[in-house]
Every structure is written in structure tokens, then in C-alpha cells.
């Protein structure tokens, strides 16, 4: 907790100094449990199940502006964005808070959430590595899906992907921190995930929902964590509006997460842990 009390600048340099070491530790941990990691990543292949349905549906001609190649492309990018914005903080916080394992983490001279962010980033090269065979298999099955986006689209996509990553991580942290108040917050997370699967464009491109719903879903935080970067890369929605909503939701989630941490940690201490 010492780092929290220090002033902003020294806190930042402190994190920056510890960063490479933590990255290294986290990455080594990942390599040690590599079989487990590969299984985790492979179990996020639901977009491919969804693709099979839409691929069959589009066999007779385009469906709602998407032909078979468009669907393959959509779900390939979907897979990539989902992997690169993934984290496990909701499970970790839930477990650590319930079992009291948060206590030793609080003693470390680095904020537990910052520590987790660092671990999440360390997992990225690993996740990217596992994406290769999956996306490679998709591209082998349907080579037409490969395309060269313009420089601008790529830049906007990178920014959008970054915002998605931060927002998704913050939202998971928020649900994990609910464990400060409820013994078990995974139920809430499952409910959120079920809503997210539909409204984020995970199961179905949002374009395929009926008229009014599309615009409504595009304003929500679900879409900001997944659909927004996909649609930006594929040029299917307005770049500026997507980025604005993503930034807005990230600010809201950041504020909420900070407030929850402050209130929660006081409560956690009050239990005597």
C-alpha cells in the first residue's frame, strides 16, 4: 500500500522500474503452465461455431450485406480482438477476495490491480501466438478473407483495440470487486457475459439485428469492448462515434472501478482479513 500513498510521479516511476521484472515473472509462469494456457485460449473458439451457422446461411447468397467471405472475415477479426482484449481478473479477484489471498498482495509495494494489469499484458504475446494456428486454419479454409486494410483503418483499429482492452479489463475488475460485498460474484459475471455475447457482436454481427436495435447496441459498453474495433477495421461503422463511445465508457468504468476499490478495500479490512 506504500506505493498508493506516495505522490503520483514517484508512484509511476516505481511501477515503471518494476514493470520488466513482473512481466518476466508472469511470462515464465505462463510458460510453466503452457498446456493449461493453450486450453484456456482454445476454449474461446465459440465465434467459430457461430461462423458455421452464418456460413451455411450465406451459402445461397449474401445475408444482410454479408457474404460467406465477409462472415469469415468478421469472425476471424472477432477471434483476434477477443483474444487480445481478454484477461482473467474477474476470476482472480473473486478467488483472492473470498479466500483472503488478497491480503499478502496488499502488502506488496505495488497496487494489486496494477500488478494484475502487468500480468495480463505479459499474457498477450502468448495469446497472440496461439491465435496464429486458429486464424491460419481459417485463412487456409477461406483464403479470400485475407485483406490489406488501409493505414488509416489500421491506426484507428489499433487505438480502438487499446480502448477495448482497457475497458474490458476494467469491467472484469468491477465484477471481480463485487466479491467485496457478495461472497461470490461469478453469477453476476455470467449474467453480464450472456448479455455481452449478444449485444457486443460476439455471436452475430450487430448489422444483422433489426433496424432500431443496431444503433442502440452501438452506444452500449458491450459493443465498445468487441464490436467497435471489428467494425472499424472492416469499415462497417463510423470510426469517430465508436472511438468516442469507447473513450466515454472507459472513463466511466475507470471512475467506478476506483471508487469500488476504495470502498471495497475498507470493507475487506473490516472483516479482519
Amino acid at each position: 500500500m506504500r506505493a498508493l500513498q506516495a505522490d503520483g510521479w514517484s508512484r509511476l516511476t516505481h511501477v515503471a522500474r518494476a514493470w520488466p521484472t513482473i512481466q518476466q515473472i508472469a511470462f515464465s509462469g505462463m510458460v510453466a503452465y503452457r498446456a493449461e494456457m493453450i486450453i484456456w485460449v482454445l476454449s474461446a473458439t465459440l465465434p467459430l461455431v457461430m461462423l458455421s451457422l452464418w456460413n451455411s446461411a450465406a451459402s445461397g447468397g449474401p445475408v444482410g450485406g454479408y457474404d460467406q467471405v465477409d462472415f469469415a472475415r468478421y469472425f476471424a477479426v472477432n477471434l483476434i480482438v477477443r483474444q487480445l482484449t481478454g484477461s482473467w481478473i474477474v476470476w482472480e479477484l473473486n478467488w483472492n477476495i473470498r479466500k483472503g489471498e488478497l491480503s499478502p498482495r496488499l502488502l506488496r509495494p505495488m497496487h494489486p490491480l496494477v500488478f494484475n494489469l502487468c500480468e495480463t499484458l505479459a499474457a498477450l504475446p502468448f495469446r497472440a501466438g496461439i491465435l496464429f494456428p486458429l486464424v491460419g486454419a481459417l485463412a487456409a479454409w477461406r483464403p479470400e478473407l485475407l485483406f490489406m486494410p488501409s493505414g488509416e483503418a489500421l491506426a484507428a483499429f489499433s487505438l480502438s483495440l487499446l480502448l477495448s482492452f482497457v475497458l474490458a479489463w476494467l469491467i472484469q475488475a468491477i465484477f471481480g470487486m463485487l466479491a467485496f460485498w457478495f461472497d461470490q460474484s461469478m453469477g453476476f459475471w455470467s449474467a453480464w457475459f450472456a448479455l455481452w455475447s449478444l449485444a457486443a457482436g460476439y455471436f452475430v454481427p450487430l448489422d444483422l439485428f433489426p433496424e432500431g436495435w443496431v444503433d442502440f447496441f452501438r452506444c452500449l459498453p458491450f459493443y465498445a469492448t468487441l464490436g467497435a474495433p471489428i467494425d472499424i477495421l472492416l469499415g462497417r461503422s463510423a470510426v469517430g462515434a465508436n472511438l468516442a463511445f469507447q473513450a466515454g465508457w472507459t472513463l466511466v468504468a475507470g471512475g467506478l472501478a476506483t471508487a469500488m476499490w476504495r470502498a471495497g478495500i475498507r470493507r475487506y479490512g473490516a472483516v479482519g482479513a
Partner: peptide, 30 residues
């Protein structure tokens, strides 16, 4: 928690059915 699970169960059933309705709204036979 039992009641929360009720909501989750309902939502996930929804999650299975909604893509079906969306796709069949556009294509009659798949």
C-alpha cells in the same frame, strides 16, 4: 445465488435462441 442463477439460465437460453431467430428472419432454410 439460486435466484441469480435463474436470470443467468434465462439469459443463456436467450443467447442460444436469438441468433437462430436472427438468421431465420433472413434465410428460410439453412
Amino acid at each position: 445465488s439460486f435466484l441469480a442463477e435463474f436470470v443467468v439460465g434465462l439469459l443463456s437460453a436467450f443467447g442460444v435462441a436469438v441468433p437462430l431467430f436472427l438468421v431465420y428472419a433472413r434465410v428460410p432454410v439453412i
